[in-house]
Design a protein around this nucleic acid. Structure first.
Length: 1123
RNA sequence: GCGCGGGUGGCUUAGUCGGUUAGAGCACCCGGCUGAUAACCGGGAGGUCGCAGGUUCAAGUCCUGCCUCGCGCACCA
């Protein structure tokens, strides 16, 4: 075993390897040795190299003839720090793009930034302390928007660093930016398309409104902010004008009561009029009440819920008979009658139910959607009691005017409770019947956390309801991963689609390009040149306007300054809104190319896009707005495939959020285990769409298992390859002629690669990664390399060594290519050193369909792809045999443990009983099992007996309810051999049922009394049973050999603790008591294995020196010294 | 309230058409192996597969109800 000396060159670091890589006239493909792994350094140095090589760009150029695969980046906002959850999304984006590139596709990846909208404004408002619209306007819209423009880039550097460090390959030097004039112009164009098609309209609608941000929200934004809150709800008496009775109504928003102008009842609902019989009991809490004799009207079904008094029912009647009754306004001056005849009367509405409240719905026209619609229908006065700032308007009530509505609950309750009530016309007990804390989910502002007010306001809408069917059709065409997000969640959203409220009364955003005359004529501008024309027209008609150059800034306040001219000569002013920022990103598929003004070819070739990938929280966000815009503008879907990622949770399963402070900093892992391990962990931890509990230990584990193992396999190969001057191109080794072990690992590689690819196609990246990791750790490292070590120790060039080197070369390079999309660093280093070629320039081992003439990304032509695949031959029989061999090796260890025989003590014989021919592996097995010789035993019954087991699947239909009894009879038969004979003869009957061979399984197990283990082998449909029997008898030769191995092992350990160089020689002396006598050959063997120059085995009885090492084995004490 | 997806040893998870012994990894314990790595091998302990019913000869798997977690929708009076 002279191999050790060949291990001498272990200290070279990969760093030096990179430097001298192309020096020295070595073949490009001839590997140099690897060093110890420093993953972080490897990655950062590689980043430098990629940068200097322009690796990303050249990976695309390399595929310039390939079919396009179009990826669209969902633009992040760069005004917040990136967290680990961003790394997850970017990993999935990147891996698909890298994979497709390797498959021969041309995958352009334009970066993008979302730069408009509320998040930016809020950030700036906080920083500049401009928390109201007035203060912004005082500060100056111009300066404010300038601040927004700058603020957008606050964390751009952090994003860029993260993106580069994790190796997300995307073009950040030439991104689309939503604030760019070109981008805005494309958005304008899109809006004009909608306007021309009649989809864009101006409406007056009750919308959730945030007084702090001064803006209303679309439904997808509202959905972001639901929160459970407990608030006072009130039951209020509405005193009839012509009778001494009050109608009870309930509201959870007392601030809407001054705006009350009607009461709605269900025409079919049964109401009662009842009289209070006695005073309330002590259990009454809170404000409100009623005196004995007061009469109240409410839905009969809700009396128990609502009333706290004993009452007598005076009358029952349907809601319809209440309709038209009038009542006293609660706050007489708050709302002017404005000529309405129906104000403060009872109205009917079929949506009134008796599930909550009193069956009577308080109606404040301006503060509820149903209220508003009913008010418009019934002719109620539409008058605001609340201003845009969220406080009561002057003239509502002296105690309320100017106060923020949410702060008025107590005042309103007090006013109502006063004797006679807030209007002085109520009963002595006041107009409040009862108050009750009420817990419900209420929408809050997704940026400021303030409760939203439902508020009637002017707004612009896109008529999504008009294209609902098209949305659903297009959605059906999208390949969703997972499919239930598309069918379920997204489909449900689309089926309930509402018109999209796209205008915002804000400052920083894409301005709404609609100009309007006072009498309502409108013009929508779709481009800068159109704006210039219109401005020119207006100027020609004598309307003063600022300059409108080609590069006019399309933001506020510049565009507000233009006054246009209507067809009939009236001045038109711009509607003072900006767009919902989700509209901007929804335009990305075309606005990124400045379509239709520029980039026509790029757009035509890239719409709809092939692939998008974002978190599932984008279902109502970007996934929706992309489709909404493409449907209304192009009557098309926007994307063909959408991967919807699960939420990222912390290790405890809590959502990662800024407010919780549980965001994991990706750099913690980039700087410890590296980006490879971080990415691999994220992908293999679970299905992409499942919530991912991000566990730091998991990253560590991935590093230790997957990457360290891979590196060591590589190092093992590279070190010997360098030493031997192995050049895969200069030599060859016929695969078919290689030893079984080589053909086995190559076949396994084929199997694993094929499965890996299939998993990729099915979006099962996690399964792909897990299986591959298992291959690397178990098959490659723990079996192939372990079994092959000695093959490379041989200094002489041999066919066997060459076979091993070629095999390792093939396995490693293929592995690198498979791993590269998920974790691109280490494999690039390995691939470069083994082949001279960067891995991201190389081909996907399972074929390059994108390079096939006339290919498109739509047709996953697996047949054509396979024709371009480069995988080693598959041999399932060989894989099965090796499986068995490995199981037998493990069985051997079990046998030894069961029979108390140490592993190093050889056995003379091992018998293999039954099973397929394994003669090709006998040498290997003998070594693994530490037996002198393997023998095949053909007389099965010598070591095995049979057991019968029922086959339920076959037996159940015949035996029905008796199947268990029949099964037990088969299992517990005293004479399985006899029973089997009967079955084969067709005469076996149990409980009247004829038992056939197919009803049972015959198991062979080892006989008691032998040192044996039986393993079950399944090959296709058939299972067989193979036993391993070890001969436990000792001979002096065996004992000597075993002792030699034990001594060697101890000496080697000693060498290691002495930190001796691997090729250093030692002097060894050994003293043994009660020992078997050592054979000379074994003493010789010890000396060679331990590189001993002078080896002395002392006579029995000699006394070892005091400082000698000693150990005990099977009752023998051995002393030794190493010098 | 409605919809979607989960709930399997301490943790992370696999589990095909329902088939009788629920499989791995981490951590733990014992043993082995090792000039082979942060590794590896054998064994052990640890599971009423969320709960309760039902269908069935047979249920982690199918059905019903419930509990629970996450997400989404609707929450309006």
């Amino acid at each position: 075993m002279s191999g050790y000396s060949r291990d001498s060159h272990q200290t070279s670091h990969f760093g030096s390897e990179v430097e001298n890589k192309f020096a020295g006239g070595r073949s490009m493909a001839q590997p140099s040795s690897a060093g110890e792994l420093d993953a972080v350094r490897l990655e950062t140095e590689l980043l430098e190299q990629w940068k200097s090589e322009n690796a990303f760009v050249s990976s695309i150029q390399n595929r310039k003839e390939g079919a396009p695969f179009i990826f669209l980046e969902g633009p992040p906002t760069a005004n917040g720090k990136p967290g680990i959850h961003h790394v997850v999304a970017r990993t999935y984006k990147d891996l698909v793009c890298r994979w497709k590139t390797m498959e021969g596709f041309r995958v352009e990846r334009k970066g993008g930034w979302d730069t408009h909208g509320l998040p930016v404004e809020i950030e700036v408002q906080k920083r500049l302390d401009l928390m109201s619209n007035e203060s912004i306007e005082q500060f100056g819209m111009d300066a404010f928007n300038q601040a927004c423009r700058e603020s957008v880039w606050t964390y751009e550097a952090a994003w860029r660093e993260m993106t580069e460090r994790m190796a997300y390959w995307v073009d950040l030097d030439n991104p689309y930016v939503t604030l760019d004039n070109n981008y805005v112009e494309s958005c304008w164009w899109a809006l004009k398309q909608m306007f021309d098609k009649g989809y864009l309209y101006r409406g007056h609608k009750v919308l959730p409104y945030c007084p702090q941000t001064g803006t209303s929200y679309s439904s997808h934004e509202v959905a972001l902010g639901y929160k459970e809150v407990e608030e006072p709800s009130v039951y209020v008496k509405f005193k009839l004008t012509d009778e001494d009775a009050s109608i009870l109504a309930w509201t959870t928003t007392p601030w809407t009561l001054p705006g009350n102008v009607g009461l709605a009842v269900g025409p079919e609902v049964t109401y009662v009029r009842c009289r209070v019989k006695e005073a309330a009991g002590d259990s009454w809490t809170g404000a409100g009440g009623a005196d004995v004799g007061e009469e109240l009207i409410l839905a009969k079904d809700l009396m128990k819920e609502v009333l706290r008094h004993h009452v007598e029912i005076i009358e029952e009647f349907p809601g319809s008979s209440l309709v038209g009754r009038s009542y006293e306004p609660l706050f007489p001056d708050a709302v002017p009658r404005m000529g309405s005849t129906t104000a403060w009367t009872v109205l009917e509405a079929d949506w009134v139910t008796t599930t909550d409240g009193t069956g009577v719905v308080h109606t404040a026209v301006m503060y509820g959607e149903d209220d508003y619609n009913l008010g418009m229908e019934a002719g109620l006065p539409a008058h605001h009691t609340v201003g845009m700032d969220g406080s009561f308007i002057e003239g509502t009530h002296p105690e309320l005017d100017g106060t923020y509505v949410k702060d008025c609950d107590a005042t309103i309750i007090a006013l109502l409770s006063a004797s006679g009530g807030s209007n002085g016309k109520g009963p002595q007990s006041g107009l409040l019947y009862r108050e009750k804390e009420y817990a419900h989910d209420y929408p809050h502002c997704w940026r400021t956390d303030h409760p939203l007010l439902y508020y009637a306001m002017d707004s612009w809408f896109v008529r999504m309801t008009a294209v609902k069917e098209r949305l659903l059709e297009f959605n059906d065409e999208v390949e969703w991963a997972p499919d239930w997000v598309g069918e379920g969640r997204f489909g449900e959203w689309l089926r309930n689609v509402k018109d999209w409220a796209i205008s915002r009364e804000r400052y920083w955003g894409t301005p709404l390009p609609v100009w309007r005359t006072e009498d309502g004529q409108m013009k929508c501008i779709g481009s800068i040149s159109e704006l210039q024309e219109e401005v020119a027209k207006a100027v020609a008609a004598g309307i003063e306007n600022p300059e409108c150059p080609d590069d006019v800034d399309l933001h506020r306040p510049i565009v507000d300054g233009f006054t246009l001219l209507s067809d009939d000569g009236q001045p038109m002013h711009r509607e003072p809104f900006v767009m919902d920022c989700w509209f901007d990103s929804g335009c990305a598929s075309f606005a990124q190319w400045h379509h239709p003004f520029d980039g026509g070819e790029q757009f035509d070739a890239s719409f709809p896009v092939d692939y998008i990938c974002e978190g599932v929280d984008q279902t109502r966000g970007w996934f929706y707005t992309l489709l909404a815009v493409s449907t209304t503008v192009f009557d098309s879907k926007a994307y063909k495939r959408c991967l919807s990622l699960g939420l990222i949770l912390d290790a405890e399963g809590k959502k990662m959020s800024k407010s919780r402070g549980n965001i994991v900093d990706p750099w913690d892992h980039f700087n410890r285990e590296g980006a490879d391990a971080t990415r691999w962990y994220m992908v293999t931890a679970g299905a992409p769409w499942n919530p991912l509990k991000f566990d730091s230990n998991g990253v560590r584990e991935t590093y230790a298992k997957m990457f360290l193992t891979l590196w060591n396999v590589y190092k093992f190969h590279a070190d010997y390859a360098a030493l031997d001057g192995f050049d895969p191109e200069a030599s060859s080794s016929d695969t078919a002629q290689r030893p079984e072990l080589d053909r086995w690992i190559l076949s396994r590689l084929n199997t694993v690669a094929t499965g890996y690819h299939e998993s990729f196609v099915n979006w099962q990246f996690h399964k792909a990664g897990r299986d591959l990791e298992d291959f690397v750790v178990n098959d490659l490292s723990n079996w192939y390399v372990r079994r092959s070590r000695r093959r490379l120790w041989d200094e002489a060039d041999s066919g066997d060594k060459l076979a091993c080197q070629h095999t390792l070369h093939e396995v490693l390079t293929t592995l690198c290519r498979l791993i590269a999309p998920i974790s691109p660093f280490m494999v690039d280093t390995i691939h470069r050193n083994l082949t001279g070629l960067a891995v991201h320039q190389s081909d996907w081992p399972l074929g390059i369909p994108g390079a096939i003439e006339g290919a498109t990304a739509d047709e996953w032509d697996e047949v054509a792809a396979k024709a371009t695949a480069t995988l080693p031959p598959h041999d399932s029989a060989l894989e099965a045999s090796m499986d068995l061999v490995r199981e037998l090796a493990e069985a051997g260890r079990r046998v030894r443990i069961d029979n108390n025989r140490r592993q190093r003590l050889p056995c003379s014989k091992g018998f293999i009983v039954a099973g397929p021919d394994l003669s090709a592996f006998h040498d290997l097995l003998a070594e693994e099992l530490n037996v002198e010789i393997i023998q095949v035993e053909n007389d099965l019954d010598r070591f095995q007996r049979i057991e019968l087991a029922p086959n339920f699947r076959a037996l159940a239909p015949k035996a029905r309810a008796n199947v268990n009894d029949v099964a037990n009879a088969i299992k517990s038969t005293e004479d399985p051999v006899g029973l089997l004979a009967q079955i084969d003869a067709g005469t076996a009957t149990i409980m009247g049922i004829l038992i056939e061979r197919s009803d049972i399984e015959v198991k062979r197990v080892e006989r008691e009394g032998f040192a044996a283990q039986t393993v079950e082998v399944t090959h296709g449909e058939t299972t067989s049973h193979v036993s391993l029997v070890l001969d436990m008898n000792d001979t002096p030769e065996l004992l000597s050999k075993g002792m030699a191995r034990d001594i060697t092992r101890r000496v080697q350990a000693r060498r290691k603790t002495l930190d001796l160089d691997i090729e250093a020689t030692i002097e060894l002396e050994v003293w043994m008591e009660n020992a078997p006598s050592m054979m000379a050959a074994d003493e010789e063997w010890v000396a060679t294995e331990t590189r001993t120059s002078a080896c002395i085995f002392h006579e029995k009885g000699a006394t070892p020196p005091a400082g000698a090492e000693h150990f005990e084995v099977d009752g023998t004490v051995v002393h030794f010294t190493v010098v």
